[in-house]
């Protein structure tokens, strides 16, 4: 990978587009500029992304605690992933979380993106758009601190409200189902605004005369939504779901701050296990193996997007 970032071999090349009238000194300066300007980005990405990828792959085949010498263990780290109950639970948790959170996120975002298009004063539309987008700029860790208080089983506002309307109080962060629900709600609360923005952009690009033509044919409301909006929005829906899936697969801040993965392992996610394996149990090889599996899943999702977009998505 280091060959990629070595600027010298190609540095002698003159820029092809430079007109012949350009003086030699300028041509040399152009070459200088090219590699000087690329160097920080290429060297930086090489050192802090490419080298770590290779390092991660290598580490996954070793058992290493930083202190003693690394020990080659072949595929043992990967084999352990399948047998280790914590790792297995964390991946199942992550998959379950992704399915529910992403579905909820897309549904809420689409619903609100369609609603925000309806007739209302411009300032009101701006207010709604800003409100839905606002949580995105907050820190997930701080948001989780706030939500931990709101969902506190003893004195949290949520249970107070439930009690006030004569509903049973819920052990939000103390029961498995409660903790999972809170992590999902907090995550979706903070992230639906992103999908919402994508859908607002996608809806705006649907030509209005399509609706007008279908109105003349007698199509209304729900029928138009199914026959026009959804198919024409499908490229946006696909991109939005892939981005949402990739981001949800990497969830860490919310469960770490809200529950530390508990109760038991109920909200332990894949990235939490990477963190705990590496930085609490000093199992760097195992952490790398989990990271590689997670990356392969993410690449798989991206590849699936490309396949699906060829088969199912309508482009106008």
């Amino acid at each position: 990978m280091t060959a990629v970032v070595a600027p010298t071999p190609a540095a002698a090349e003159a820029p092809k587009s430079a007109p012949t009238a350009v003086p030699r000194a300028d041509r040399r300066a152009t070459t200088w500029l090219t590699w000087l300007f690329l160097a920080p980005t290429l060297l930086g990405l090489g050192l802090f992304t490419m080298v770590p990828i290779v390092g991660s792959i290598l580490l996954a085949f070793f058992r290493w605690d930083i202190i003693s010498d690394p020990q080659f263990v072949g595929f043992a780290n990967f084999a352990e992933l399948a047998t280790d109950p914590t790792v297995r639970v964390s991946f199942l948790n992550t998959f379950g979380f992704v399915v529910i959170a992403v579905t909820l996120q897309l549904a809420v975002a689409l619903f609100l993106a369609v609603l925000v298009q309806s007739r209302m004063p411009a300032w009101l539309r701006t207010f709604f758009r800003s409100a839905f987008f606002f949580p995105l700029i907050l820190s997930a860790a701080s948001v989780s601190l706030v939500m931990a208080y709101l969902f506190n089983a003893e004195f949290g506002l949520v249970n107070q409200v439930l009690a006030a309307i004569n509903l049973p109080e819920v052990g939000w962060l103390t029961t498995d189902a409660g903790a999972i629900t809170v992590v999902i709600l907090v995550y979706v609360w903070q992230n639906f605004g992103f999908t919402f923005l994508l859908f607002v952009g996608g809806l705006a690009s649907i030509p209005r005369d399509v609706y007008e033509a279908s109105s003349i044919d007698g199509a209304t409301g729900w029928k138009q939504f199914r026959a026009i909006t959804l198919p024409l929005l499908s490229p946006t829906v696909l991109v939005a779901s892939v981005m949402a899936i990739i981001s949800a697969l990497q969830i860490f801040d919310q469960p770490y701050v809200l529950t530390r993965g508990g109760p038991g392992d109920a909200t332990r996610t894949a990235v939490m296990v990477i963190f705990e394996s590496a930085f609490q149990q000093l199992e760097f090889g195992r952490a790398s193996a989990i990271g590689i599996v997670l990356t392969l899943i993410i690449i798989g999702v991206t590849a699936l997007q490309f396949r699906l977009s060829r088969r199912f998505v309508f482009y106008s």
Partner: peptide, 26 residues
């Protein structure tokens, strides 16, 4: 314009696919 531009830009884009949690240990 320079030799290897497409390849280098492709590599830059490829690094976007790798989640930070995977490279964090190295």
């Amino acid at each position: 314009e320079f030799r290897g531009k497409g390849l280098l830009f492709g590599l830059v884009l490829a690094t976007m696919m790798v989640p930070m949690q995977v490279t964090i240990v190295p």
